[in-house]
Design a protein around this nucleic acid. Structure first.
Length: 455
DNA sequence: CGGGTTTGACCCGCGC
DNA sequence: GCGCGGGTCAAACCCG
């Protein structure tokens, strides 16, 4: 009797959980869609340099959104943990992978904005004082917080290509690293404030660390949009996260939830890992694309200079294949750095694409559970991922670019044919960013060709 | 010749 | 105040 009663109660609770989860996912999905639409709208008004405002607005919107749900963080987290441990056998979210990625495509041309207030920037005619007018808002908005997004990727090329045009304006030996650090400025627009630093990892020279800073003030080519979306999302993640976050494995941080959860699921990809650092001169988030998916998720400490991970030692997995990442990586960002052959490999698995879409939603759920404050940025991140995913099948611009830049298209060659015709990017997620692939006949990084082709 | 790179000098913030 | 280190400038140089 008692046992059956408990059993019934258990069933009831499970059902309830399922319902709640469904609601949560539905809400999240709606938010993602709305956010994408918002981004599209804002992009249609290019003179609005209000991305920072957008960010701040974003942060307020989902708050209320989620607060109405009143989901206690801890309990939901527990729920999710239990769920992942049971290898997600219960998947009530049937249609999750469907429209989640629709629309996507274009988002804000951006990394986070930053102010530059302290810089001189006397060149290009904009005196610091004058600059303040244009960019003051952002700095005032987040006083003292100037996010950077650092991307670690294996590459033998001197610089990874991300779709933008860069001009080198300096090089310097950084302390503690035998390899020089190169400074680049975006040259796609006259006064674009975006800069990036490129430096090889001191301990593993095959790893190229690219740090982005600033906010593009011009439209970006599709290939660059993918990167911009991702870095923007990452920066948003960083800025919207707890101000108290420190280096190391931020398991309590929503960003950690994002990548950690992603990895914890059965999704075989998700090799991107995030590192947050508030102790660095600027808050920095590091996306690590050097990891094989099977390796343990690592959250790297990142200070002024890159450090070896101390808390998570599983990070060091060298690939003798050097410049090549012999494993498929789903993230559109990651795919940008992949050698050409990697894309088709991943592309041939529509099933995986579905799974990934599902995983994305689970990730959203997990992150929300971890910290509602984080949802804004997270949604941006997810949108970014989805935008990239859509690139393979739906993002018209990306497709056009793929056609233009890659003669043989790469177009994930029918990969997108997941049968799921309606949804823009549900398929092809892993193979997504087509624009960056191919072009050259060399087996080098596909992205290498991107710069030249987009010029 | 125009645009990008190189490289030493310079500026500035920060810690001592 | 001083030294150090990160970041930027700008003249010289290179290259197509």
């Amino acid at each position: 009797m008692e046992a059956s009663a408990v059993e019934a109660e258990l069933r009831r609770v499970v059902d309830e959980n399922r319902r709640l989860r469904g609601m949560l996912e539905e809400l999240t999905r709606s938010y993602g869609t709305l956010y994408q639409q918002l981004l599209q709208v804002t992009q249609n008004h290019p003179h609005q340099h209000q991305h920072p405002d957008l960010m701040s607005n974003r942060s307020s919107l989902p708050h209320t959104h989620l607060n109405t749900m009143g989901a206690p963080n801890t309990s939901t987290r527990q729920l999710l943990e239990a769920r992942t441990s049971s290898t997600t056998q219960t998947q009530p979210d049937a249609g999750v992978e469907d429209e989640a990625s629709d629309g996507a495509g274009e988002a804000s041309p951006s990394g986070n904005n930053d102010s530059d207030g302290k810089r001189k920037m006397s060149q290009d005619g904009t005196a610091p004082a004058a600059r303040e007018n244009g960019e003051q808002a952002s700095s005032a908005e987040l006083p003292g917080r100037k996010a950077r997004v650092s991307v670690r990727a294996r590459s033998e090329a001197p610089m990874i290509s991300d779709g933008c045009q860069w001009r080198k304006y300096g090089q310097k030996m950084a302390k503690g690293n035998p390899c020089p650090r190169a400074y680049y400025r975006c040259t796609m627009a006259v006064a674009c404030p975006v800069r990036k630093q490129v430096q090889r990892c001191a301990e593993d020279k095959s790893i190229l660390v690219t740090t982005y800073e600033g906010h593009h003030n011009h439209p970006l080519p599709p290939a660059a949009t993918t990167m911009a979306n991702t870095t923007s999302a990452a920066a948003a993640m960083l800025l919207s996260g707890p101000a108290t976050s420190r280096d190391g494995p931020l398991l309590g941080h929503p960003a950690a939830a994002l990548f950690h959860h992603h990895h914890a699921t059965t999704i075989p990809y998700a090799s991107t890992m995030a590192t947050l650092s508030a102790s660095a001169p600027f808050p920095t988030i590091t996306l690590d694309l050097t990891q094989p998916p099977a390796a343990g998720g690592g959250l790297l400490g990142h200070g002024g200079l890159l450090q070896r991970p101390t808390a998570v030692g599983t990070m060091i997995h060298h690939h003798p294949a050097a410049a090549a990442m012999p494993f498929p990586v789903p993230s559109p960002l990651a795919a940008m750095f992949l050698p050409q052959r990697a894309a088709p490999a991943a592309a041939g698995m529509p099933q995986v694409a579905r799974q990934q879409q599902q995983a994305v939603m689970e990730t959203v759920t997990a992150a929300i559970a971890a910290d509602p404050n984080f949802t804004t940025a997270l949604a941006a991140a997810i949108s970014s991922v989805m935008a990239g995913a859509a690139g393979g099948g739906g993002a018209h611009q990306a497709q056009a670019a793929a056609a233009a830049t890659t003669p043989r298209g790469s177009n994930a060659s029918g990969v997108a044919g997941e049968g799921n015709g309606s949804s823009a990017g549900a398929a092809a997620a892993p193979a997504a960013p087509p624009a960056t692939a191919a072009a050259g006949s060399s087996p080098r990084f596909a992205t290498q060709s991107c710069t030249t082709s987009t010029t």
